[in-house]
Design a binder for these strands. Structure first.
Lengths: 157, 157
DNA sequence: GTCGGTCTACTCGGATATCAGTTGTCCGAGTAGCAGTGG
DNA sequence: CCACTGCTACTCGGACAACTGATATCCGAGTAGACCGAC
């Protein structure tokens, strides 16, 4: 089981965008993080489709967050990039094979599926509890102010 | 993000094995669940490597659980099949690019990694709380006794 | 009747193809700002 | 000096390959039980 690597990039981008205050083109975000420009563009498109960012065309265009950072949860970003489907998908094994249980008997979900669903919900709940604002605050706490200012300068240049 | 489909099969196999009481060959488990025999064998090998089941060679051989079902958690099975590595792996983006933070400054893990790690732990904790015995009990509660007996007969035949 | 040897059929285990999904890349459509020009 | 027009450079968006890892398969190594014969 492996989450898309784009999730990490997307989250970093959200943090950067929140500090920028002005539209930031995808190329600049890619250079800043030293990742593939074309592939990062794909992730940003996914964020755009999910309505988390808005794109501006033309010169001095780029991406901007659509909401306050406190209104964007980590789960929002994860689901935008990696999809909202749960990692485990029950294939109804009990309805197959020589001892198949007829479908009309399966009114309650398979116990295994229930356990997995519960775990998945705990995972999502944990991600939903943290917002991008929390991340930004954490970064601000552990990073020197001068570094943050330097980043701001670099983004404008 | 998608979990290996083998996890579902492996869990079903554990439930079946706990009810069998005698070694069950992989071929029988595959036929019972109507899945690829060769591929299921792979999953059972993984369970064997993890020490959850023990294989017996020769005639009337097969797989047996090594511990009581109450001593096997769902997490054990998931990690045996799908690996114990967390879904999210921090690539230390902050140490790359033109504004790279030097490694010696990164004494605390990246906030994003912390959030992901926390969620991953919640997920695993949820899976660790349920044992195969719980699954067996649940199956026994929702399945008619006659069906269970039929399964037992079929396994011996 | 019992013990030993042999043999067979059945089991698992690892090495080997195939396929899907993620990763990575490219080019075209569209637009905002800028420069030039005319009033 | 100001407004309009055309242009240019820059932006995103979706369509197109390459590669890693999951999926599926096969055949060989090894063993437990059964069978047969001798004692």
């Amino acid at each position: 089981m492996k989450m898309s690597g784009g999730v990490e990039w997307a989250l970093h981008c959200c943090v950067v965008l929140s500090r920028a205050g002005a539209p930031v083109p995808a190329a600049k975000l890619a250079e800043l993080h030293d990742v593939s420009q074309s592939y990062l563009a794909k992730q940003l498109q996914l964020l755009s489709r999910a309505g988390l960012v808005r794109s501006t065309l033309g010169q001095s265009g780029g991406y901007v967050l659509t909401r306050a950072t406190s209104e964007i949860t980590v789960l929002d970003v994860v689901e935008a990039i990696d999809g909202a489907q749960p990692a485990f998908r029950c294939t109804e094994v009990r309805q197959r094979g020589p001892l198949a249980v007829p479908a009309e008997r399966c009114d309650t979900p398979c116990p295994i599926a229930r356990v997995m669903d519960s775990a998945d919900r705990a995972w999502r709940e944990s991600l939903r509890a943290i917002t991008v604002a929390d991340l930004v605050a954490d970064v601000g706490r552990t990073t020197p102010a001068e570094t943050l200012e330097a980043a701001r300068q670099w983004l404008r240049a």
